[in-house]
Amino acid sequence: MDTKNILIAEDSEIEGMILERALKSAGYNVERASDGLEALEKYLSKNKYDLLITDISMPGLSGIELIWHAREKNILPPTIVLTSNRSEEASLKSLEIGALDHLTKPYNLPLILAKVKVALGRT
């Protein structure tokens, strides 16, 4: 079985590090980007990710904009959105634009790992 590659776009260093460690401990290859623009650049240069986990509110390029650009370039993998915004509108927007799932912060790591497993099982 091939090890799956995950890209995390998260501007919070602490949250990104916690998520990265949890995913690596679960056996995934993980790279991080500190904002949406850096994540898009990684996608355009490598295009080897099996899953994207992105925050919505980031400087430069938001998670919604990242999803939109990746979708327009036909490089959008299964995507899980993380956000502090608990509004139904934010959840619907991320799902409408192409995200597979939407989770609010603070998040539960076992729940994220389960959702990652489901998302990667669909690829």
Rank of each mutant, 00 (worst) to 15 (best):
M1T: 07
T3P: 12
K4M: 14
N5P: 02
L7W: 10
L7I: 12
L7C: 09
I8G: 04
I8Q: 04
A9P: 10
E10C: 06
S12F: 06
E13F: 07
I14K: 08
I14N: 13
G16M: 09
G16L: 08
G16E: 09
M17C: 09
I18T: 09
L19Q: 11
L19F: 04
E20V: 01
R21P: 00
R21Y: 06
R21H: 09
R21Q: 12
A22E: 05
A22L: 06
L23R: 06
K24P: 01
S25T: 06
A26T: 02
G27N: 03
G27Y: 02
N29F: 07
V30Y: 06
V30N: 07
E31V: 10
E31R: 14
R32Y: 06
R32V: 12
R32G: 10
A33V: 11
S34Q: 13
E38A: 15
L40W: 15
L40C: 14
K42I: 14
K42S: 15
Y43Q: 15
Y43W: 15
L44A: 14
L44T: 12
L44E: 14
L44R: 14
S45N: 14
S45V: 12
K46R: 15
N47M: 12
K48E: 15
L51W: 12
I53A: 08
D55F: 10
D55A: 12
D55N: 14
I56M: 09
S57C: 10
S57F: 13
M58H: 08
P59K: 06
L61E: 04
L61W: 05
L61T: 13
G63Q: 05
L66V: 08
I67E: 00
I67K: 03
W68S: 10
H69T: 03
A70E: 05
R71M: 01
R71A: 02
N74I: 01
I75D: 03
L76V: 00
P77Y: 02
T79Q: 04
I80T: 02
V81W: 03
T83A: 12
N85S: 08
R86G: 08
S87W: 01
E89T: 11
S91Y: 00
K93E: 00
K93R: 12
S94M: 02
E96I: 02
E96W: 05
I97S: 01
G98C: 05
A99G: 03
A99N: 02
A99P: 02
A99Y: 01
L100Y: 07
L100M: 08
L100I: 02
L100V: 01
D101G: 00
H102R: 04
H102N: 07
L103N: 00
L103K: 06
P106D: 07
N108M: 03
N108S: 13
L109Y: 07
P110D: 01
L113P: 13
L113E: 10
A114I: 04
V116S: 07
K117W: 02
A119G: 10
G121Y: 06
G121I: 08
T123L: 11
T123A: 04
T123I: 13
T123P: 03
